[in-house]
């Protein structure tokens, strides 16, 4: 249950082509994250899978069945929206039970399932409240509760954490990963935050302007980005790019070096530069360096690295940690 296939799926709004053609295979039980800059078509793709938008052309299969023309109710998927989309006039209990009521499940079974979901999500004591009386994190859990009671073929999440504050976001991230481990149901999760993608996904789908740039496990994407865009998008702080003479010497149009892959020295190295801002975080040190050749790059050292604003520094890429890109952006 929960294998989803997209075959040459296209979507246009009027004259504007938002998804120019996507092929994708999602395996049963996988946690798949769609990631990409805002406006790249992540939500649109998710809503096409949900059935909330009609495809312009192409096919969508769930467990081998063609659902391209089936309405959202027929697809057996559950969705958690960014705005939570709870029913404001219903209690938490009624909200969670709503999909069961629509499925005409017997009352006793409904109650049992709601209670079980409430237990998993720590909502036991809020069941009689209205959504308006809950905090953001609690509302999010109600929305998840409403999704899990139906035991859907797959869960669809559209940026579910973006309305929460940073600390809660980290907690909920872990809770959702936990839930996936427990339920082992397919989850498709949309986010623009590459940290969420890296920490939660079995498989990441990187999107840009409605096109898939690369599909792979988090470490695949980190270790061998297919192109400059993926290289720059995955990893934090972002990959540094250097063009010109230095890149040409290595036989590439541009080279990329991740901040954590510089060797730093105060005496010698491949790229001399000057420390701009030095961020001493204790656990690591982030140095913003202006290279003598003009580029601004970021370098990260584990632990403490004792340099300060204005100091001279030499950066050298670690062996085998230089990504080479061609003029068209593809990995060389």
């Amino acid at each position: 249950m929960g294998a989803i296939t997209l075959q040459n799926v296209r979507k246009s709004f009027g004259d504007v082509e938002v998804i120019p053609g996507v092929d994708l295979e999602i395996n049963e039980g996988e946690f798949v994250v769609f990631v990409g800059p805002s406006g790249c078509g992540k939500s649109t793709l998710l809503r096409l899978i949900a059935g909330l938008e009609d495809v312009t052309s192409g096919r969508i299969l769930i467990d081998g069945q063609d659902v391209t023309d089936a309405g959202p109710a027929k697809r057996g998927l559950a969705m958690v929206f960014q705005s939570y989309a709870l029913y404001p006039h219903m209690s938490v209990r009624k909200n969670i039970a709503f999909p069961l009521k629509m499925a005409k499940m017997p009352e006793a079974e409904q109650k049992a399932r709601v209670d079980r979901a409430a237990k998993i999500l720590n909502l036991d004591s809020y069941l009689d409240r209205r959504p308006g009386q809950l905090s953001g994190g609690q509302r999010q859990r109600v929305a998840i509760g409403r999704a899990i009671v139906r035991e859907p073929a797959a869960f669809l999440f559209d940026e579910p954490l973006s309305n929460l504050d940073a600390a809660l976001r980290v907690n909920m991230r872990v809770e959702i990963s936990d839930l996936h481990n427990k339920l082992k149901t397919t989850m498709i999760y949309v986010t623009h935050d590459q940290v969420e993608a890296m920490t939660m996904a079995d498989k990441i789908v990187v999107l840009r302007a409605g096109r898939i740039e690369q599909v792979g496990s988090p470490l695949d994407l980190y270790n061998s980005p297919a192109n400059r865009f993926v290289g720059g998008f995955i990893g934090s702080p972002n990959m540094n790019f250097i063009e010109g003479e230095a890149a040409r010497r290595m036989g590439a149009h541009s080279i990329g070096v991740r901040p954590e892959h510089w060797r730093m020295s105060t005496t010698e190295g491949a790229f001399p530069g000057t420390v701009g801002v030095a961020e001493h975080l204790g656990s690591d040190t982030l140095l913003h360096v202006e290279l003598d050749s003009g580029e601004n790059v970021i370098a990260r050292a584990e632990g403490e690295f004792p340099v300060h604003h204005g100091d001279k520094i030499w950066l050298t890429p670690q062996d085998g940690r230089v990504y080479k890109f061609r003029e068209d952006g593809l990995a060389a």
Binding site: L52, M79, Q82, S83, P88, F98, P99, M102, R146
Partner: peptide, 27 residues
Amino acid sequence: IPGEILEAARMDGATLGQEIVHVLTPM
């Protein structure tokens, strides 16, 4: 009335009639 709530009802398996009765009208 946020459109997402109506979409949520659709995802939850509500037919158009049920959507009108249980979600739209009360709101």
